[in-house]
Design a protein around this nucleic acid. Structure first.
Length: 360
DNA sequence: GAGCCGTGGCT
DNA sequence: TAGCCAAGGCT
């Protein structure tokens, strides 16, 4: 069977070239009987959804140091976890991370389910992540189909169907390649292959362990794959954000609604983000316009006009007021941190703000 | 199926 | 500069 030969070839390559990652048990260690911690595999897979390895590493180290077990994470405060997630993006992942940890604690005795179906029922765990945990953590022969596997498989078979419609075909093809031996290492191997050899732009076919099996490589048109349906252009939206400090030196923030963009995260009060952008200060203050922040989200560009005011006072109970020692800019999603950085630079350089600081 | 949901690095 | 891309899931 060619499939068995392909799996053996890839696993041999993986034994020599596996990436060293914080959440990974090396093929050598795995052969020595060391198993991955399902909690760590789950954590890494959630963080890696649509996110680069480089971006994830420091977050993974911090989360697992802060919360070494799923029960410890389940017992953490929402605000603390969301604050630590700030900057990583796709914040529904952090909310589902907590939901999932509490389901594991309350309904599964603190232990992860050991089947693909059981894992699939967990919040934030879809087809890819369920297969990834089942294979990597429990060494079950489940097939992972992420962007890497889609690219590798579409090139292997020169699949002319464009994504995302091609997903079912690619899944079926990838399943025919998944071996019953070392399925956990195989899953990581095929993703490593996609990440390091079978890359999107200029794949290194000359050193690919699967060169002899690859239809696209034979023809030489590997860069055509995978085919993709065209994306819609991003519109540009505008808005205003208001960065204020009270007479007592507290920052005036708000917790955003649970659902929608930046759901559950801290942010500065402001207008909606739409095509038009009328100013509308949320409360009284000596507002000064300090500039613009440009930021691109998944489906639109944002131009955010930033205002700031010092020494505000009045009925601010509806806001989340944070004193200096209770506020970390790193707890803010990136667009809000950009607005803070811009406004904060004017607080410290503006003569009026400086005078106010001396009095305080 | 298609829209929504972040961010940073690379070309 | 602007677009593409990254170990996707939810509605």
């Amino acid at each position: 069977m060619k499939q068995l030969e392909m799996a053996d070839t890839l696993l041999d390559w993986y034994d020599r070239h596996a990436r060293d990652l914080p959440w990974r048990v090396s093929p050598q260690d795995r052969k020595a009987g060391i198993s991955p911690d399902p909690y760590q595999i789950w954590m890494s897979e959630i963080m890696l959804q649509q996110t680069t390895v480089a971006a994830v590493k420091s977050y993974f180290e911090r989360f697992t140091a802060l919360w070494p077990t799923v029960t410890a994470l389940a017992n953490a405060e929402d605000e603390r976890v969301l604050g630590e997630w700030a900057g990583l993006g796709y914040y529904a992942r952090a909310r589902n991370l907590l939901k999932c940890a509490r389901v594991i604690r309350d309904e599964h005795g603190g232990v992860f389910p050991k089947t693909r179906e059981g894992l699939l029922s967990l919040p934030g765990v879809g087809p890819y992540t369920a297969a990834a945990i089942a294979s990597i953590a429990f060494d079950l022969p489940e097939t992972v189909v992420d962007g890497n596997v889609e690219r590798v498989t579409s090139r292997l078979f020169r699949l002319e169907t464009p994504l995302p419609a091609a997903k079912p075909e690619l899944t079926a093809l990838a399943q025919t390649l998944t071996p019953n031996e070392r399925p956990g290492d195989y899953a990581q191997a095929i993703m490593d292959l996609g990440a390091t050899i079978c890359s999107p732009k200029s794949p290194a076919c000359g050193i690919c362990p699967w060169m002899a099996f690859c239809a696209a490589c034979k023809v030489g048109d590997q860069a055509r794959f995978p085919l993709k349906t065209p994306k819609k252009p991003k519109p540009t939206r505008h808005g205003h954000a208001y960065v204020a400090r009270t007479t007592r030196g507290e920052w005036v923030l708000e917790t955003r609604p649970e659902k929608g963009l930046l759901g559950g995260m801290l942010g500065w009060p402001g207008t909606d983000w739409r095509e038009a952008h009328p100013k509308a200060a949320p409360f009284e203050g000596a507002w000064i316009e300090v500039g613009e922040v440009r930021h691109t989200f998944t489906h639109f560009h944002l131009i955010l006009t930033v205002h700031r005011a010092d020494q505000v006072e009045g009925a601010l109970e509806v806001y989340a007021l944070r004193g200096q020692n209770a506020f970390r800019a790193s707890d803010l999603p990136t667009v809000m941190r950009k607005a803070f950085d811009l406004a904060h630079s004017t607080f410290t350089t503006d003569p009026v703000a400086s005078d106010a600081n001396q009095e305080a």
